[in-house]
Write a protein that binds this DNA or RNA. Structure first.
Length: 663
RNA sequence: GCUGCCGUAGCUCAGUGGUAGAGCACUCCCUUGGUAAGGGAGAGGUCGACAGUUCAAUCCUGUCCGGCAGCACCA
């Protein structure tokens, strides 16, 4: 039969001749439908509207304002960008131009790179091309034909791309007027559908096919949206993100700095260090009872790193040191630890361990140094010297799953306490190509981890998403990665749980099992914050510097209206400090307006203003950051309220449910 | 590490082939003012480092260091 059945979104069906195009069907229904449809979804897959339909299918006509069209707007926009660039600078080679989150990019090869100054001209040309509103038309070429045309046009990269397309796939060419590009599609019906809500954002270098051995291309990034309003919102969001950049806030709030002599190492100022220590203090409380905190040396003979495998696998990223003395006899090379695990194995090995000692959980807020590539460094987020909230659990195979779950619970509750209430993703990374250990061992480990993963998902309800990252595991074992979402929707990978069958054996670590036999323990590496420096950076951006009271470096400032209030202000300060609050005093001879402004800009959560009235009535005028007004209350009452609010969330929980109920 | 851009006072930034400027911050003086900038004066820079070109370099060129944006990297 030469008829096919098309099912419409409302469930109705209709017969059409085989090979009818989506456009024909749309036109048959109504010209306005045909006009506003930019692409069709055939059985849920976006397809060019002009494509003939050869089989029974469910059809859905997608209009430009449909969420599904957004990716096409961006992709089409990338094509228009490429045409604009080639028309302005003939001889520029085009390569690829995919869509990405919030936009698209296109990589060009040209001897002279583009600069943002070129954007105005490119955007102008793009608007012309869009205004021309030429239809996107698809042609299928033979491989040889495509290669010849691209080769004749001097498009060497496109020739390579054609070669890279698998034999069983056709070579599709999309034209928009005169200009054409190799493309998988689909595209909207014409360039005019792109609209004008787009903007070129930045230029950057990028390697051809992502390989650092290949030539560097110039990448132009753009963003595109269905409506101008959406573009404006997006640009506004970028501004907001810039405002909370931890590097900027770190300077403004006097938290830390970097300087040339110490690339990638942090100079923590008093306030930043207070924040950092609040974090460490929190983690210590959470570990109490379950973990033993230890401290392994910062610098160790390189032979130890040879045993661990780091000297072979990781040397490029390590700092080494030796005596600086010209006449020193000891010329051994030492390495700064890039990881804590070898040190912990040494501690484990010290003294015979029994199966009764397991699981043995060893924690360290260890400072590690890694020689990160210069281009990788970024404020606190990627540094060369940092503190890990690291721990290693030595356990038996049988204990492995329970330990992973226990770690999971700790990680999740920690993130909640720091105000990360959004979606969380747990990714399981499985065996990489380069790995140690037998396949049976990996099979077993991955099976255990997969079971744990489903349990994590089940326990987490809707909040937890799980994923598998095939081949992304560490060379010594599979791992979980925990990704949290911050206040403005950005994802950060922080926690990790890594199973290791390798290191204990390398170091000859063992325990005596119940049957008297020596056995190598399984080692689980885990971190919750990951790098404490980075986590502090994430907190700064998450809270935009407006820390909750329990984290704020300066929790409260007492200040005066006139110097008449000085004595009373000092008494209030003493009472605040006695109550355990981080309090400062500001007795400067400045107007109250000025002082309120300064402490507000410094993001001090609570300002206690005292004048004659307050001194006489033993009260304070409390002004909270972010509020326009203030509230006068008895000093004792104000302090009690602040103390309560400043109590860390874990301590509050402990107060709420004492471990041992009172008799 | 790669590509591009950048490096001038504590911060934000202007500027010039003839060794530099603003605002804020800082110091001092005046001001004692009820909740987001009171007024005045002063001090402060080897113009990232080292070479080169030039009569002369902060400015031009090169190398290096550091930073920014991507890319690559993140065992």
């Amino acid at each position: 039969m030469d008829q096919i059945t098309i099912t419409f979104p409302d469930g109705k069906t209709r017969e059409y001749p085989r090979g009818t195009t989506g456009l024909d069907i749309a036109k048959g229904i109504s010209p306005s439908l045909a006009k506003r449809t930019v692409v069709m979804a055939l059985n849920g897959t976006l397809t060019d509207l002009a494509d003939p339909i050869d089989d029974n299918a469910a059809i859905d006509f997608v209009a430009r304002d449909d969420a599904r069209a957004l990716e096409l707007i961006r992709h089409d926009c990338a094509h228009v960008l490429a045409e604009a660039v080639q028309s302005l600078w003939p001889g520029t080679q085009v390569t690829i131009g995919p869509t990405i989150e919030n936009g698209f990019y296109y990589d060009f090869f040209r001897n002279e790179p583009f600069t943002p100054e070129d954007f105005a001209a490119i955007e102008k040309k793009m608007r012309e091309i869009i205004a021309r509103d030429k239809p996107f038309t698809k042609e299928v070429w033979t491989r040889d034909e495509a290669k010849k045309v691209f080769a004749d046009n001097g498009e060497a990269f496109k020739v390579e791309l054609v070669d890279a397309i698998p034999e069983d796939q056709t070579i599709k060419i999309y034209k928009q007027g005169e200009w054409f590009d190799l493309c998988r599609g689909p595209h909207m019906t014409s360039t005019g559908k792109i609209g004008t809500a787009f903007k070129l954002m930045k230029v950057a270098g990028a390697y051809w096919r992502g390989d650092s051995n290949n030539p560097m291309l110039t990448r132009i990034y753009g963003t595109a949206w269905a409506k101008q309003e959406d573009l404006d919102t997006y640009l506004h969001q970028i501004e907001e993100a810039e405002k909370r950049d931890h590097r900027k806030l770190g300077r403004e709030l006097d938290l830390f700095h970097f300087q040339e002599e110490g690339p990638g190492v942090v100079f923590w100022h008093a306030k930043g260090w207070s924040l950092f220590q609040s974090l460490v203090g929190y983690m210590r409380r959470r570990l109490a009872g379950d973990y033993d905190e230890v401290n392994a040396p910062q610098i160790l003979d390189k032979v130890l790193w040879e045993t661990s495998g780091h000297w072979e696998w990781y040397r490029e990223n390590m700092f080494a040191a030796q005596s600086a003395g010209e006449d020193a006899e000891d010329k051994r090379w030492f390495a700064l630890k890039p990881m804590n695990c070898p040190g912990h194995v040494q501690i484990f090995k010290h003294g015979l361990k029994s199966y009764r000692d397991l699981p043995l959980r060893m924690a360290e807020f260890g400072v590690v140094h890694r020689y990160e590539p210069s281009g990788a460094m970024h404020g606190l987020m990627r540094v060369r010297g940092f503190t890990q909230d690291d721990a290693h659990v030595f356990c038996t195979e049988a204990q492995l799953a329970d330990e992973c779950i226990k770690i999971n619970d700790l990680i999740l509750s920690t993130y909640s306490d720091f105000g990360f209430e959004g979606e969380l993703t747990v990714k399981l990374s499985t065996r990489p190509e380069k790995r140690v250990g037998t396949d049976e061992m990996w099979d077993h480990a991955e099976r255990v981890m997969a079971t744990v993963l489903s349990e994590i998902k089940a326990k987490g309800g809707n909040r937890i998403k799980t994923e598998i990252n095939p081949g992304e595991g560490a060379f010594y074992g599979p791992k979980f990665e925990y990704v949290l979402r911050d206040a403005i929707g950005r994802d950060w990978q922080c926690g990790t749980t890594q199973v290791d069958f390798n290191l204990p054996e390398r170091f000859g670590a063992f325990y005596i099992d119940a049957d008297g036999a020596k056995k190598a323990p399984v080692m689980v590496h885990r971190a919750i914050c990951g790098s404490m420096e980075r986590f502090t950076g994430i907190l700064i951006e998450h809270y935009a510097g407006n820390f909750p009271l329990w984290l704020a470096p300066v929790q409260v400032v007492v200040t005066t209206i006139t110097s008449e209030g000085d004595d009373y202000a000092k008494k209030v300060l003493a009472a605040l400090r006695k109550a355990g609050l981080r309090a400062d005093i500001d007795l400067r001879n400045e107007k109250i307006n000025f002082k309120v402004r300064e402490h507000s800009l410094a993001k001090v959560p609570a300002l206690l203003v005292v004048g004659k009235k307050e001194a006489e009535s033993h009260s304070v005028s409390v002004r909270r950051l972010g509020s326009e007004g203030q509230k006068v209350m008895p000093t004792d009452e104000a302090i009690a309220a602040l103390v309560d609010e400043a109590t860390p969330p874990d301590v509050k929980r402990m107060h709420a449910s004492p471990a041992v109920a009172a008799e």
